[in-house]
Amino acid sequence: MTQFLAPILTLTGLGLLFALVLTFASKKFALVQDPRIREVMEKLPGANCGSCGMAGCARFAEALAKGEAALDNCKVCSEEAASEIAGILGFELSLSEKKAVSLRCHGGKKAGDKFIYQGLKDCQAAAQLLGGQKLCSYACLGFANCQRACPFGAIRMSAEGLPVIDIELCTGCGKCVQACPRDLLVLIPRRGKVYVGCSSRDPAKVVARVCEVGCIVCKKCEQACPVEAIKVVENLAVIDYDKCTSCGECIKACPRKIIFGRK
């Protein structure tokens, strides 16, 4: 009798125990979550394709609800679903901002080389070899992966070996953002007419050694800004586009001339 009962009881017992523990835990550890996230999640395609740049639809829904992501980042979502999501989150679909890309490095020839690179003419390949041929580990490598990725011909390479963005042709699709191994291209709202042309998080001492035009953390832009929209965070000037009025004071103040205006 025992040899018959023991396995049945053990397995049922185990199952029951874990069922209870899990039920208890799901109550106890239930996240106080924005209820809209779940609703948005249901309307999203749920394919977890990652084209929005987030880890899956769930993360995208979370970012949407927090206002960290724009709805048009999702390229798969149907217009119908998009307008429903906009309804849930309480904003008009047409308000979703148009963005255009900007380059966060203007080193080019002014950023020194570590060694002579003779490999594949491809940024990804160059970045894999000893972290790229540039002295600055944030510098543009200049092998035009972004130019090749751009479906609209909005990027061409300058004589310096830096990508130049034609903002009128840029649609803000973000293909170049994904193509850049250094993460140097950023999507900035079109109303932002000012951007910082450097991405180095190195301290000023290092920047001064490796590049003639890197941000040296002097904070002059911070002082010049009348609306406190520009802040130096982790050794780099960062613009808050919710506050920025595109007045251009920081452009004048920057001693390294790496804050630029655009159309």
Binding site: P7, T10, L11, G15, F18, L31
Partner: peptide, 29 residues
């Protein structure tokens, strides 16, 4: 103790799956 080693595979799967679920909840929180 109960001499039921033959339940090894099924009970291991059960235990692993549910404990990982539990760990996931705890980590999320």
């Amino acid at each position: 103790p109960f001499n039921i080693e033959f339940l090894r595979t099924i009970s291991f799967i059960l235990v692993i799956a549910s404990s990982v679920q539990l760990a996931e909840m705890v980590i999320l929180k």
